[in-house]
Design a protein around this nucleic acid. Structure first.
Length: 510
RNA sequence: GGGCGCGUAGCUCAAUGGCAGAGCAGCGGCCUUUUAAGCCGUUUGUUGAGGGUUCGAGCCCCUCCGCGCUCACCA
């Protein structure tokens, strides 16, 4: 049984009173002739000619100022806010009093009348008739906007608690227009990515989310069970192995935008489910993919935001001005690590030697003594290099042993043709010249299995069907993956992934 | 999983171990161009949950729950 608070009980009472007067608080149909923006535009269009602009508006009451014989109310619709003006002259005292008594913040209303301007010039609907469209039982978290002299809007008592905002995203969206704007931008970003890839000859495809084997990344999967098949299934951790099967099938350029699931920790940049973009491009290598990437991001910047300059506040005291102009800076990993840590990984071809070099130079750091060489390089990368990668940068040429699906650099057995895109100090995307040699691939799977026998969590399952596909012949190709939330964070200046997820993962209530 | 921090009214926040408060929202009243409208009056609490110390706990201690930051993890 719902436990209503005092404010809600009052509103429930009003619902009964409305019904008692023969007025339906939740009518089936609504009419609207103009959105707020359309009504204002119509008023602007007639100018001073004295032509009457009649309009019926619909929206949600966000502020109301009753003054006895007058009431000013702001309603908000999908286009913005507009003021309603109720006056005894048109409506009579009884109707004005009725409105003031029965209509609350948060209610959806419909109002008809004539557009006018108030003494301050604000476009306003002078109301001749009004109707409840949906009575709100629970009051929305109060949020009042104050427009300061310089035009900036100051918000008072807005819903701010991050947990409440995420749990009750509907309320967050209802009272915080900037949150709505973030998700509109996120949608526009996704749409621009699709347009860019479609225009570049890529085919959008969909591959299985429920998979009998998982692969394509190193992450713990979610496990579920198919009853009829009596078989465990995994929620995918990446699309990679399925998309590359399609290249075997002569689809030269494919991409997928969809959900990945990784059964791991939650942080400001990790959510257990997130939206991934992956594309694979036959006859491209990682250099070609770098160009595609910076052009694709540039296209998104231009079409959605009209600029390539972005402010990003990493935390309260760290502000970055990011520039997504092409070409992005390119840093070779070995060189970057050398410059930021003073250690040349090329001088230490084994894990043991590299480990000794790190602790000799940095006795305060704690690299894992049992880590593989690639893991140690990754440690150096995270400790020293990554924090310096503020402007959009491609970091390229990665250690082979942490990149089992990437092709080796010709003449360098320890290095693969792989790059990651960085901005604001965190990883944005990951790409490589894809390994298409079935014999090499099989050996890499076996090596991974051997290297991680102690560590069940990171063991790569060997995907026989993927190898079978590759044996039919896979064209040389470049592949790319990017977390869409990461991109949305960067371009909308949100420091937490939760701000760009409508419903981020939360512990269940109670 | 480890460390640090937070949790008080519908919302935003106060309260030295000593009567649980303010603004907004709500309710009653005044007000014919307001816009955080204003003015007068007024209501609202399992202080996240449970236990302990104390004459007395929102505050101190323990356990649990939730969230935030951070580390680990995330090739």
């Amino acid at each position: 049984m719902t436990d209503y608070n005092q404010l809600e009980k009052i509103r429930l009472q009003k619902i009964e009173e409305l019904r008692a007067e023969g007025l339906e608080p939740y009518p089936t149909r609504a009419e609207r002739t103009h959105t707020s923006r359309q009504a204002i535009a119509a008023l602007d269009a007639v100018g001073d000619e004295g032509i009457e602009v009649r309009a019926t508006l619909a929206g949600r009451i966000r502020a109301t100022r009753p003054m006895g014989k007058l009431t000013f109310t702001h309603i908000e619709d999908g286009d913005g806010k507009i003021q309603l003006f109720l006056r005894v002259n048109e409506l009579g005292q009884e109707k004005v009093d009725f409105f003031n008594k029965m209509y609350d913040l948060g209610d959806f209303v419909q109002a008809s009348g004539v557009m006018m301007r108030t003494r301050t010039g604000e476009p306003t609907l002078q109301v001749h008739d009004f109707k409840m469209l949906s009575k709100a039982v629970s009051p929305l978290p109060a949020a009042k906007d104050e427009t300061l002299e310089d035009g900036t809007v100051l918000r008072h008592a807005a819903l701010e608690d991050p947990e409440l905002r995420a749990r009750q995203r509907y309320a967050d969206l209802a009272v915080n227009p900037n949150v709505r704007e973030t998700f509109r931008k996120r949608a526009a970003i996704t749409k621009a990515i699709r347009t860019f890839l479609d225009d570049n000859g890529f085919l959008e495809v969909e591959t299985p989310i429920l998979q009998p084997l998982y692969g394509g990344a190193a992450a713990r999967p979610f496990v579920t069970h198919h009853n009829e098949l009596d078989q465990d299934m995994y929620l995918r951790i990446s699309f990679e192995l399925y998309l590359k099967r399609l290249l075997v099938g002569n689809l030269e350029r494919v991409y997928e935008i969809g959900r990945d699931f990784r059964n791991e920790g939650v942080s400001f940049k990790h959510n257990p489910e997130f939206t991934q973009l992956e594309f694979y491009c036959a006859y491209a290598d990682y250099l070609k993919v770098m160009e595609l990437t910076e052009n694709m991001i540039g296209y998104v910047c231009d079409t959605v935001f009209g600029t390539r300059q972005f402010a990003f506040d990493k935390d309260d005291s760290t502000h970055y001005d990011l520039d997504f102009s092409t070409p992005w800076r390119r840093v070779e990993m070995r060189q970057g690590i050398l410059e930021t840590s003073g250690i040349d990984i090329a001088n230490y071809p084994t894990a043991e030697a590299l480990f000794q070099a790190i602790i000799a130079k940095y006795p305060n750091k704690n690299p894992d003594p049992h880590a593989a060489r690639g893991k140690l390089i990754d440690f150096l990368l995270g400790e020293f290099l990554e924090p310096t990668l503020i402007q959009p940068t491609f970091l390229y040429d990665y250690p082979r042993d942490i990149s089992p699906l990437a092709k080796s650099k010709p003449g360098d057995a320890l290095t693969v043709e792989r790059f990651e895109g960085y901005a604001a100090g965190f990883e944005l995307c990951n790409a490589f010249t894809e390994l298409n040699d079935p014999l090499d691939q099989e050996q890499r799977f076996l090596d991974m299995g051997r290297d991680y026998t102690d560590d069940e969590e990171e063991k790569h399952p060997l995907d026989e069907d993927y190898l079978r596909a590759m044996r039919y012949g896979m064209p040389p190709n470049g592949g790319f993956g990017m977390g869409m939330e990461r991109l949305a964070m960067l371009l909308t200046n949100n420091r937490s992934i939760r701000e760009v997820l409508l419903f981020p993962a939360l512990r269940k209530e109670e």
